[in-house]
Design a protein around this nucleic acid. Structure first.
Lengths: 300, 300
DNA sequence: AAACATCGATCCATTATAGGTATTGGTTGA
DNA sequence: TCAACCAATACCTATAATGGATCGATGTTT
């Protein structure tokens, strides 16, 4: 196989059609350049130049090979440059998992921020429930996950990103939705309630169970669902009340009123970023640092 | 800049993840292979492998570089193979000129023959009158021309390809078109006649003038045109008679009858191939030889 | 736990390759 | 015909690549 320096030499001679000047351009003397071209021609088993007298001309084969040589040299230069950008995290692929509920709050900002500040990073987005994300983080199918706590301490690191309040979702005509009415947790006691599924949305289920237990009440669970927009649809249909994260406001659903609830203060819904502790992918580091930085700024 | 053998070594180690086996595959011993990879890493200023204990793993940069390395090696191999095919004429570009009239006879066979028997040759087709083709052959804009004689002897070589008969084009209702009638040249004397243009179709003009002079007749030129299909359109419209090459039968125009004419025997319309005498392009040689070969078989 | 096997890195002597200087031979232009 | 030019050649030197022996570290076996 020929060498890249042979290609460089060939291109230089092909462009100058003068061994002396080509050698000068290559910072060498003319005799070894002649030898290099000869070796390249022997290697390819093809005449690249016509040496008629003291004039040098490309043969048809030389013309054909010139464009290939330029392409190979260009690719090589490109590869050398871009591989240097990998350890800086500017280039790479990151598989990002997210829960359906986080898609309504922080995902837009994260994807947008990566697109503008890490344009060389390819994001692969996968919607998964938190448990499945943990599994796939371990197996390597995911590099970074946006999950609900808790994160088991075996091989995964994590960091809180975001806390959200819970709001009551009330059908528009319902008495609790009256403008002068301030809903209280106790108002939910015994009421029909659209609950999260303990299997597919275990985190929300447990958060709500904790809230109800703390308040000493017991709503009447008429349905168990996992997706916020489905829950709101049932609320609008009048099947019951619900508690949903504040980000549900972004959905802008008519016919449902979202109200703070006395006794459900604070921001009990937490979102954390999780990743493999031993993952040394520079692109992951860059993305993770960016996500944490965005979280610190409140995901403007 | 790195070398291609460094890339080969890198790919071998990346695929085996074992310096010893990779060295074996490269027909060398392990120490110089270690050094090659180290030099490549120093050249790129990037760690390509993690040597943890006695296991070798690709880094993120190594994975990114692997695909580039494979592409560069593949291109190089491809370039080395294809440049060998150039001198055989199997690869290259040939600019082929042709007259409008030859498009109706031999061009299909030529283009088809090149496509099947010289699939690596790119044909650039240009319709030009014969005179312009000669100019562009000299200037290098064309490599091969399908022209009408004569070809001036300065720097161009040529070879006859094809001879064609002239047929009379007669409107369907005309007395000469009657099935039992055999047209004779003298029938054209003084008749309205759609003539070739002496400027744009000089060859046909001169051939017809020669025919009429030999027969001692003088048709009445009602139009001067250069394209066969335009001439036939005027004949169909009843503006006059015409003489056209037999290939006009391919046009299959209704309303016009094509008939042999007594006194215009033989095949007076000649087509020749012409090319630069000093052109050493292998692709041109291959195409020219193929065209001549096809001509010898009568363009089946 | 200790001996052993495995594997990549290092050291060193040898060989091969590439580069430079001087020169030749052929071609072009004055 | 002579001089200038240019690529090719010959020859020598310097640099770099190779291979054998060995080291050091890391798992593995008994």
């Amino acid at each position: 196989m020929f060498t890249l320096s042979q290609l460089e030499s060939f291109v230089a001679v092909a462009e100058t059609l003068h061994y002396g000047r080509a050698a000068e351009r290559l910072s060498m003397t003319q005799p070894p350049l002649s030898r290099r071209i000869q070796l390249l021609e022997r290697e390819l088993d093809v005449e690249l130049f016509d040496r008629i007298g003291r004039s040098v001309r490309l043969t048809a084969a030389g013309r054909a090979f010139l464009s290939d040589a330029r392409r190979i040299l260009g690719l090589s230069e490109q590869a050398a440059l871009s591989v240097r950008r990998v350890p800086a995290g500017e280039i790479g692929t990151v598989a990002l998992g997210f829960t359906a509920s986080s898609a309504h709050s922080v995902l837009d900002d994260i994807v947008g921020g990566i697109h503008t500040r890490l344009p060389g990073v390819d994001l692969v987005l996968r919607e998964r429930v938190s448990g499945r994300q943990m599994e796939e983080l371990h197996s390597g199918e995911l590099d970074l996950g946006l999950v609900r706590p808790p994160v088991p301490g075996t091989g995964l690191e994590h960091r809180p990103l975001h806390r959200e309040a819970l709001l009551a979702a009330i059908p528009a005509g319902h008495p609790l939705a009256a403008p002068d009415r301030v809903p209280h947790v106790r108002d939910l006691d015994g009421e029909p309630f659209v609950m999260y599924s303990p299997a597919e949305a275990r985190y929300f289920y447990e958060v709500l169970v904790g809230v109800f237990r703390g308040a000493g009440i017991a709503p009447w669970y008429v349905h168990h669902l996992s997706q916020v927009h489905t829950i709101l649809a049932l609320v609008r249909a009048g099947l019951g009340l619900a508690l949903v994260p504040r980000a549900a406001e972004e959905l802008g659903l008519d016919g449902v009123v979202l109200r703070p609830v006395v006794g459900v203060e604070g921001a009990p819904v937490e979102l954390v970023a999780a990743w493999r502790a031993n993952d040394d992918s520079p692109a992951l580091h860059a993305v993770r640092d960016l996500v944490i930085d965005l979280a610190g700024r409140g995901f403007s």
